[in-house]
Design a protein around this nucleic acid. Structure first.
Lengths: 229, 229
DNA sequence: CAAATACTGCGATCGCTGTTCTCAGTAATA
DNA sequence: TATTACTGAGAACAGCGATCGCAGTATTTG
């Protein structure tokens, strides 16, 4: 009756009555993450995950109500890879910048995070992450709602930069060249002079190479603007 | 031979030889957008689009090589709804803020834009948008790569705020209450004291109500930080 | 101890998806 | 007129998420 729109984590992992399950949610999640890391989110189908575990698709539904549940589990599992161990300095900008760096690293390690069909519901690890971010923000005089919004914007920056860095990684030698040429092909000289110009210049310079440094600078600048001194 | 990784727009809409096509890409795109606006991206299947047009799924492949092509067409079509008509003031921050506002309005009108499986390749309208943004940035002394990155970040802010505004719209009377309660349910009092506190305060105050105003403030602040005076 | 109960594994199957094959029909070209 | 290049669309294929039903098993209850 109340099992609609419940997160995975609110449902018990196993009942108390029958035979012990042969697998755990953690195992299934690990298998799914392995598939996603190797072959993308497309490869995370109930059938392929089941095959990876040596069972049938139907069996997985004993552990997970829907595929989206599995995706939630995956997202929360890798959220656990974000390093929350570093001691807080008391400077919200600095502490959040460090946190964002760690979060971005996780995104680079698991590119499929950017392709999730919907914002994953946050599980235990996600909650720990949020709590940590709020703790870092505590020294500021921001009201609670603004704190939440700040964390949201920080996450947005993380995904934004992770996206561009991954995009840049995928065009190996000359970054953006593939994309640039396809852009240039359709940019009309007279209709889009600035795009053409920007692309021409972009292939000359490499000032835009170190996107991570840009990320660090950007995050600090944005946070500084948002958090009262 | 060269028809792989080509955008839809590089392929001719029709050949020169046979009978005239009974439909146009624009018609198909319009039908798909109608479906997406009404029932979400899920409803945009080749079958349902075909049914909407009174034909079979296979016929659509005369107009479009793949479903992703259709999604590109949809994205570019609504990109055309972004207002580029307002004259530029010469102040990049102001002009880009106005542009971002219009872009966000389009996102609110077509929520499925946020759920596209991958960044859409930009077509004619997307190019016009980019060109317009670059023109607004022209008075600044930013180098070209930084201009591109600024536009990228602006787009990120647009999608970020569109997401939160849409999320807020979906929980009607007491914004965020549904989300908040499900959050609170799993937030452990001793493990996540700040989340609990933030949620408690959040239901009292309504300082966070006008997200659009927050958006405008935020965009201007971020842009001001990025664009040299 | 035995009966009832609540669970697990999973083959079979449903309805749906994107996409391709194939072929009849049509219009422009040679 | 013959050739060529196109269009429409029914049929079909592989893969998808999800459900049903049943055999088997461990725990609880009488």
């Amino acid at each position: 009756m109340a099992d609609e729109s419940m997160t995975v984590w609110e449902r018990p992992e196993r009942g108390t009555r029958g035979p012990a399950p042969e697998r755990t949610r953690a195992q299934i999640t690990a298998a799914a993450i392995e598939l996603a890391d190797a072959n993308g989110l497309r490869a995370v189908s109930m059938r392929q995950v089941a095959k990876q575990l040596g069972t049938g698709p139907a069996s997985l539904y004993r552990y997970v109500a829907t595929r989206d549940d599995l995706l939630d589990l995956m997202a929360d599992a890798v959220a656990g890879e974000i390093d929350l161990g570093a001691p807080l300095s008391g400077d919200p900008v600095e502490d959040l910048a460090v946190l964002a760096g760690s979060a971005k690293r996780v995104h680079l390690r698991h590119p499929w995070l950017l392709h999730l069909p919907s914002e994953p519901r946050l599980g235990p690890n996600g909650m720990d992450y949020l709590e940590h971010a709020l703790r870092a923000l505590a020294p500021s005089s921001l009201p609670y709602p603004a704190q939440m919004e700040t964390v949201g914007l920080l996450n947005g920056l993380v995904t934004l930069f992770a996206r561009t860095e991954l995009h840049r990684l995928s065009s190996p030698t000359d970054p953006q060249r593939a994309h640039a040429t396809s852009l240039a092909a359709n940019a009309t000289e007279e209709r889009h002079p600035r795009i053409v110009a920007a692309l021409a210049k972009a292939s000359d310079t490499d000032a835009h190479q170190d996107t991570h440094a840009l990320f660090e600078r950007m995050v600090r600048r944005v946070l500084t603007g948002l958090i009262p001194g």
